[in-house]
Simulated assay, not measured.
Amino acid sequence: MTGDYLFAATIEVLSLLFGHTSGLDEDVQSLQAIEGIDDQECLRLREMGVRSAHALAFTSPAYVYFRTRYSLERICDWTDQALLHVLLGERLVRALRQHFLFRGALELRDVLRLRVETSGPGEVPGELLEILHALEEHPQIEVIELWRSCRVTS
């Protein structure tokens, strides 16, 4: 892991030195699009090798928890939001937040499940059923749920 981190850090420094920052800027913006991640938290995550929302979505919450002082609940929330960003894209997530106040993938999955359970046959659009199926089958959903259920004591 240390070799990977040093390689990534070297690439980042060289990119900054030679003026190639477009990919870095996009990664930083994707992390900052997660509610609750400010500049300081973004920097700390990037120091750990979590350089984008995509990386955050697929990084174990335990990895972040044991290397920072952030609460497990907070980290799981970030991971949940990041997964929704990865699966649906920034634009759709912004619309879901603005109009329906969705925060993460787990919440969207639960709401879609409820909609399917309370609707008659054919009442739920196929697109929503596809999103629900993708959320239910995604392995990272189970990881987030597992870590969310953990209670950590000091």
Rank of each mutant, 00 (worst) to 15 (best):
D38K: 10
H99G: 00
L56K: 06
L96P: 00
M48A: 14
R67F: 00
T68V: 09
R115H: 13
L56S: 09
H54R: 11
W78S: 10
L43E: 14
D77G: 15
G122Y: 08
D77Q: 15
W78P: 09
V86A: 04
G120L: 04
I75E: 02
A53W: 07
G120D: 03
L96H: 09
V50I: 15
R67C: 06
L87H: 06
F102E: 02
P121G: 01
H99D: 02
V86P: 04
L56M: 11
T118A: 10
L114R: 14
A105W: 01
R91Q: 07
Q81V: 06
F58S: 10
R109W: 01
E41T: 15
H85V: 06
R97T: 09
D38S: 05
C42R: 12
L88G: 08
L72F: 04
L84D: 08
Y65S: 11
F58E: 01
S119Q: 13
F100L: 08
L106A: 05
Q81N: 03
D39P: 03
S71R: 12
I75Q: 03
P121V: 05
R113C: 07
E117P: 01
L84F: 07
W78A: 08
F66Y: 15
S60V: 03
R97G: 02
S119W: 05
M48L: 15
A105R: 07
L101M: 06
F66C: 15
L112N: 02
I75Y: 08
V111K: 15
L106C: 05
Q98I: 04
T118Y: 00
L56E: 01
Y65W: 14
G104L: 00
L108I: 11
A53L: 07
L114G: 01
F100T: 02
A55Y: 01
F100Q: 04
T79R: 06
L43Q: 14
E41R: 15
R67Y: 02
L88T: 10
Y70Q: 15
L84G: 02
F102S: 04
S119T: 14
R91I: 10
G36H: 12
L96Q: 01
G89Y: 02
I75H: 01
Q98V: 08
R91L: 05
V111S: 14
